[in-house]
Amino acid sequence: MILFFGTRFGKTVQLPLPHTTCSHCKQLGTLTISKTSNWFHLFWIRIFKISTRMVAECSHCKRVYFEEEFTDEMKQNLIQIQA
């Protein structure tokens, strides 16, 4: 019997943060969160989510923030958007 399994990234979801200030360039409303999940596959069917990665990017200065670098303002606004 042949068994096909592995991992693959899912679709990337982009969420704008309209009321958040970029801590690098101090511009308001220029941040966008990109959220990507990594899935375990069995016969090309998603079975369960392994991990999720979030990255924020400023459209003005192009600064990228990894999830560990999110400010408290970013975290609170992200919670409000997802709720």
Rank of each mutant, 00 (worst) to 15 (best):
H24V: 07
V13W: 00
F9G: 13
F5A: 12
I2E: 10
S51W: 05
T32H: 12
M74F: 06
F70P: 03
M54H: 09
H41E: 09
T36D: 13
K75F: 01
F43E: 08
G10N: 01
H60I: 06
T71F: 03
S59D: 11
T21R: 08
E68T: 15
T30N: 05
I33H: 00
K75G: 04
K49Y: 04
Q14W: 10
F66R: 14
K62T: 12
H24Y: 08
I33E: 02
T12C: 13
V64E: 03
K35I: 15
N38R: 09
P16F: 06
S59C: 08
K49E: 00
T7E: 15
P16L: 01
Q76V: 10
P18R: 05
M54S: 12
P18G: 07
S59R: 08
F5Q: 11
R63W: 01
S37D: 08
V13R: 10
K11A: 12
K35W: 02
I47G: 01
I50V: 12
N38H: 12
S51I: 02
F48P: 02
F4T: 14
I50D: 06
T21W: 00
Q14R: 12
C58F: 05
F70E: 09
F70D: 05
M54F: 10
Q27G: 10
E73A: 14
Y65T: 05
I45Y: 00
F48S: 05
F43H: 11
L42Q: 06
K11Y: 09
T32V: 14
T52D: 11
I47S: 06
L3Q: 06
G10K: 03
M54V: 11
L17D: 01
F4E: 14
I47K: 04
L31H: 03
K62W: 12
A56M: 00
E69V: 04
H41R: 11
S34D: 11
K75V: 04
F9W: 13
Q76H: 09
Q14A: 14
F43K: 08
K62E: 15
N38K: 11
H60Q: 10
K75C: 09
K35E: 11
I47C: 05
K26R: 13
C61G: 02
S59M: 06
F9V: 09
L3K: 14
T20H: 04
